[in-house]
Design a binder for these strands. Structure first.
Lengths: 230, 230
DNA sequence: CAGTGGTCTAGACCACGAT
DNA sequence: TCGTGGTCTAGACCACTGG
C-alpha cells in the first residue's frame, strides 16, 4: 500500500478508536512515527480533510470533525433552533455592516441602475465555538432604512417581516462546491483555499420582487444538506 | 505575493484569455517558466482544481472545466433531456449489474432481514465524453424480477413505472461534499481522492415504501445544484 | 520561547499514456 | 519510447499560536 494511504488508515483508525479525541498528533510527530517526510504526511492529512473527517485551524493544528449540521434549504427554519435541535450551541456574530452604491453585478441582479444604494451585512455563524459559515447579505437601503440599528445577530427574515412588513414568500438557491475566497477564509479562521459549499440564495416577496441576495460559504465538512421532494 | 498564488493567477488569466483552450501546459513546463519546483506548481494547480476551474484525468494532464450542469434535485427531469437543454451530449453506460443477498446496512435501510436479495446497478454518466457521475442503485430483486434484461442505460424510473407498475411519488435526498472512493474514481477516470458531491437518494412509492436506494458521486466541478422553494 | 502549520527548494523513481 | 502526472525524500525558512 502507498505510504500516505497507510498514514491515512492509521489516523482513520485512531479517530474511530478514540471518539473523544479532538486534536491529531502534529505533522512532525507523524513523520517521525512513519519515518517519512512532511509532504507525504500532509498528503494523508489533506485526503482526510477532503473526506470531511478532519479539519485544520490556521497554524493551530489538525482537528477531528464533529457531526455535520443537517440542514434543509427548502424549509424555512431558524438557524439557532435547527442547531439546538441537533445539540449544537449556535452563535451568530456581525462581522461588518456597510451601505454603498451598487456594484454592477449587484445592480443587474436587482434590475436596478448602479446609483442605487445597498446595505451589505456580513455575518459569521458558529457551532460549539467552531465558525462554520460566513454570509454576505445584500438588500436595498431605501427599502430597509435604519437596518444597521436592528439586532442583526438575529433572524434577518424576522426583522424584514416585523420591522418593515416585508415577507419572504419564495426563494431560489444555487449550490456549488468550490474553494473559499481568502477574505472569507480569514473570518472562518480556516486555511487559504479551504473547501466550501457556496450557496447563493435569492429571496422574493409575494409580488415576485427580489428582496435580498445572500451568499453563504459553509465549511464543507460542517454541513449535510437534506431535501425532501414530493 | 506568494509564488503559488502568482502561478495560479497566471493560469487563471490564461484560461480567461483563451476560452478555446482545453489542456494546460504540463507541470514541468510551468516549473521552468516560474523557476520553481513541482511542489509549488502543484499547489497552484490543486487550488484551481478545488475552485472548480480545472480538473485532471489520471496521468493525462490538467484540463479546463466546461460549464457546470445545472440540476434541480426536486424536479424529476430526465438526465438526458436536462443535459440536452443545456447543450451537452449526454451518455449513460452500465458499469455492472449484480444480484446478491443484502449487506447489513442495506437490509436495515429497507427494514428487511439480511436474507433478502437485492439488485445492484452501477452506471456512469458522461457529458461531452467527460465522465461526471457514477451511481449505485439498490432495489429489491423480488420486486423487480428480470431487471437485468431491461434497457438499463435509460431511465430507471420509467422502467419501474412501465414494466413493473411501480411509481415513485416522493424522495428524500442528502448531499455532502467528500472525497470519492477509489473504486468510483477508477470508473470516472479521475485521480484517487478527487473531490465529489455525494448524493444519497431514497425514493418511495405512494404507500411510503422504499423503492430504491441510490448513491450518486458527482465530479464536484461538473455540477451546480439549483433549488426552488415556495 | 518552543511548537505549530504554511511555503518552498532540488532533486528522485515509478506507472501509465500517447505515439 | 518518451512525456505525463503520482509518489516520495530530506531538508529549509517563515508567520503565527500558545504557554
Amino acid at each position: 500500500m502507498l505510504l500516505y494511504q497507510e498514514i491515512r488508515q492509521y489516523l482513520f483508525a485512531l479517530i474511530a478508536k478514540h471518539p473523544e479525541l479532538k486534536k491529531l498528533p502534529s505533522e512532525r510527530e507523524l513523520l517521525e512515527k512513519f519515518q517519512s517526510t512532511r509532504i507525504t504526511v500532509r498528503e494523508a492529512l489533506t485526503r482526510l480533510e477532503a473526506e470531511g473527517v478532519i479539519y485544520r485551524q490556521n497554524r493551530k493544528g489538525w482537528f477531528i470533525c464533529p457531526p455535520r449540521l443537517k440542514w434543509d434549504p427548502v424549509q424555512k427554519v431558524n438557524f439557532g433552533q435547527l442547531a439546538q435541535d441537533q445539540n449544537f450551541t449556535a452563535l451568530t456574530q456581525l462581522v461588518s455592516f456597510e451601505t454603498a452604491v451598487a456594484q454592477e453585478w449587484l445592480a443587474q441582479t436587482f434590475e436596478l441602475n448602479t446609483a442605487s444604494k445597498f446595505h451589505n451585512v456580513c455575518r459569521v455563524r458558529s457551532l460549539d465555538e467552531r465558525p462554520v459559515m460566513v454570509e454576505e447579505i445584500y438588500c436595498l437601503a431605501s427599502q430597509f432604512h435604519d437596518l444597521q440599528h436592528k439586532p442583526l445577530e438575529d433572524s434577518i427574515t424576522t426583522i424584514f417581516a416585523q420591522d418593515y412588513g416585508v415577507n419572504i414568500t419564495h426563494e431560489r438557491s444555487s449550490l456549488v462546491v468550490t474553494a473559499i475566497p481568502d477574505d472569507k477564509a480569514d473570518v472562518l479562521n480556516v486555511n487559504s483555499g479551504a473547501l466550501c459549499l457556496k450557496i447563493i440564495r435569492k429571496r422574493f416577496n409575494q409580488h415576485d420582487e427580489l428582496v435580498d441576495y445572500n451568499i453563504e460559504y459553509w465549511v464543507h465538512s460542517a454541513i449535510e444538506i437534506e431535501v425532501d421532494s414530493k
